[in-house]
């Protein structure tokens, strides 16, 4: 588990429109990498291209390569379904399946991979919910619908659902933007714990959050509207926030634009 990701000369398109231009970025295993940048700079698009969720949008495609421990996830013989099973994702808005119970939500991904005994499912669900710091809150009502939880709990349920299938990488697309400060803190603490076992990539609009949770930070920027987004620089988080090497980064992190 916990693999590294190397994006090489990655161009991401919507139809013929180039949204993100030639990104080269290495993501270290067992670390948190934050993607920051102004709206529309392509950081979410880039994140979604790391588990091939990008191509869900009709006409969307990429060229270049994304390697997971040396294997190109865009190679011809690679099935996007396998990629997404290996690289989990947590979305901006908590999206538990409304028709499923809390328990069924957690094991939804596992059930896809073939039959397992009830006790095995119970064990994994408990493990995942514990790992998501949610077990104590829901252990007595696992059969209630997932939508009965609060927003922060729903988001942790989604994290539990994502890690129940033991992905190698966990992608988080602004996971706290729809949550209140207390839930946000809970998720941030959780990210701190999860990085012991997972490679985590997180998109965030909140620079304090990037500074708090991440080890490395990548700054994306947009030269002008209608132009593709670009990766400006990537470095240790402390360096990006104290002494970035590019002027634009400094302007952004110090709040002069964006």
């Amino acid at each position: 588990m916990a693999k590294r990701i190397d994006a090489r000369d990655l161009n991401i398109y919507y139809g013929s429109f180039l949204a993100v231009e030639s990104v080269c970025l290495s993501i270290e295993p067992r670390s948190v990498t934050a993607l920051i940048g102004p709206s529309g700079c392509g950081k979410s698009t880039f994140l979604r291209s790391l588990n091939r969720m990008h191509e869900v949008v009709p006409g969307a495609h990429v060229d270049g390569s994304v390697e997971l421990d040396g294997q190109d996830i865009y190679a011809d013989n690679v099935d996007p379904v396998t990629v997404r099973r290996t690289i989990g994702m947590v979305f901006q808005r908590p999206n538990p399946f409304p028709t499923m119970s809390i328990f069924d939500n957690v094991v939804a991904g596992l059930k896809l991979q073939g039959h397992r005994s009830k006790s095995e499912l119970n064990e994994i669900a408990e493990g995942a919910l514990r790992a998501a710091n949610l077990w104590n809150e829901v252990k007595d009502r696992l059969d209630k619908p997932g939508s009965s939880l609060s927003g922060g709990q729903q988001q942790r349920l989604c994290i539990a659902r994502a890690i129940a299938i033991r992905p190698d990488v966990l992608l988080m697309d602004e996971p706290c933007s729809a949550l209140d400060p207390i839930s946000t803190m809970a998720i941030e603490e959780l990210i701190e714990e999860l990085k012991r076992d997972y490679t985590i990539v997180i998109v965030t609009h909140n620079m304090q959050q990037a500074a708090r949770v991440s080890d490395r930070t990548a700054f994306f920027n947009l030269v002008a509207t209608g132009k593709p987004g670009q990766l400006v620089e990537v470095d240790r988080t402390a360096k990006i926030f104290s002494n970035p090497s590019v002027r634009a980064t400094e302007d952004y992190v110090s709040g002069r634009f964006g």
Binding site: R84, G88, N95, F97, T99, M100
Partner: peptide, 24 residues
């Protein structure tokens, strides 16, 4: 969001239908 959640768990298209679309 529900469709993407299913796909992000590694569901095939039919499994996405079974998981997100048909129950909804």
């Amino acid at each position: 969001g529900h469709i993407e959640a299913a796909m992000a768990l590694g569901a095939t298209r039919w499994e996405t239908m079974r998981m997100a679309v048909l129950p909804f």
